[in-house]
Design a protein around this nucleic acid. Sequence first.
DNA 1: ATAAATTTTTAGACAAATCTAAATTATAAT
DNA 2: ATTATAATTTAGATTTGTCTAAAAATTTAT
Lengths: 242, 242
Amino acid sequence: MFTPLFYVYLLNDTQDIFYRFKMLSYTEENYLKIIFSLSYPNSLEITTNDIAKKLEINPASVSDMLKKLNQKKLIDYAKYQGVRLTNEGKKIAIEIVRKHRLWETFLVDKLNFSWDEVHDVAEQLEHIQSSLLIERLYKFLDCPKFDPHGEPIPDEHGEFPVTENLICLNSCKNQQKIQVKSITDDSSALLQYLSKISVSIGVSIEICDKNSYDNSIDVIINENKNVTLSKEISEKIYGVLL
Amino acid sequence: MFTPLFYVYLLNDTQDIFYRFKMLSYTEENYLKIIFSLSYPNSLEITTNDIAKKLEINPASVSDMLKKLNQKKLIDYAKYQGVRLTNEGKKIAIEIVRKHRLWETFLVDKLNFSWDEVHDVAEQLEHIQSSLLIERLYKFLDCPKFDPHGEPIPDEHGEFPVTENLICLNSCKNQQKIQVKSITDDSSALLQYLSKISVSIGVSIEICDKNSYDNSIDVIINENKNVTLSKEISEKIYGVLL
DNA sequence: ATAAATTTTTAGACAAATCTAAATTATAAT
DNA sequence: ATTATAATTTAGATTTGTCTAAAAATTTAT
């Protein structure tokens, strides 16, 4: 049903160095990325349904692909048991995350995209195959450690920068105040909304009141703007206590 | 056998403008680009075999795709009669050429790629779908008119810059001398060779002798280097008479 | 502990883009 | 004008990634 795992030696970047290269399709890369992001940072076990929902496809399709990725030793998967990335799979996933965040940085820093315009384009750019390209881009951007949403960018060895201990706005108590450090979702719908209410990396948010009915919170943004944030929003905002 | 032509209205670039968008696959885009480049600049009729050779695939596969592109009204094609781009097909092909050449320019000017390293990466980048991206890139590069190989870059309306009257090195007579203005093939094999013999945009080449047996020519590069160039090489080099 | 509900997998089908082999059409050569 | 050669197309198969419907396994609830 599936072709066996195979490695090929490919001439990459039209450079004269050959290197071991696991041939992955655009789609396979996407699965690895999704599994990684759903399990980050705790390497949780992910379910077929989680992936199907995220990719907006049928769970049956996911089952097929999981079988294939398992054969390629990129995930650990047994029927009905959930999925976890292998070290090899994780390495590839981190590489894709790295590319995604570097491209987002490029788009914002060099091409003047706003932070809510970058996601869809970066989703495409992250699949461009060229290690030379990504290393040159990394240098061109001055080896950035965080992307425009404050998300950490892994270095060339796949290591994430050490971050201050971030806490979720959602988990703050009344009267606590944080400085926003990262938004853990780069969808344009969320980011456009945050822009509208003047939330960006660096602003302060003070918790005034918590509504236990819907878990929304009343906050003051940058000492001057009162807003109510839904649970869905507040759990995407991370920062350091002020 | 093939799905009917259809147009969709898509939200592009996460911007709030909808626009008419002909859904094309990566592969379909490549066919249009190949047909364009094989027929440029005279809109020649192209054969199934020409395309098969260029794409290194079986002519039978090309036949299938031509039928499909014809149905989509991107080419004019009748069985056994050859192919020609329609205006719509040409517009799309030029857009891809534009993207390819802008990305090549980016790689060389901003990321310090050498001219022989850009082709394979640009082949991937040219298929990124985002008009916002390409217009921003265009501005970022200061609206370049020529790519690193001297090839003209169409503007945002698909217009090619007017060029001096270029003549092919291949068609020069003995003792004539040209200044190199463009190389009409960006394969790394050719460009690496040209680098090795010190041919680049701007250098002078003087024809010393023509060998009618294999159509090779003996030339002097930049007044100091004697080299013999094969027909295959000399027909890729264009310039202005000095 | 069993039944009900949910999740996951299998089976079979489909579209896109390719292939090989065979048939057809066009072109060139005598 | 007929034949030989070359180019092109058709027919049928394959791979990848998806689907729907049905079957199987797991989880939840009583």
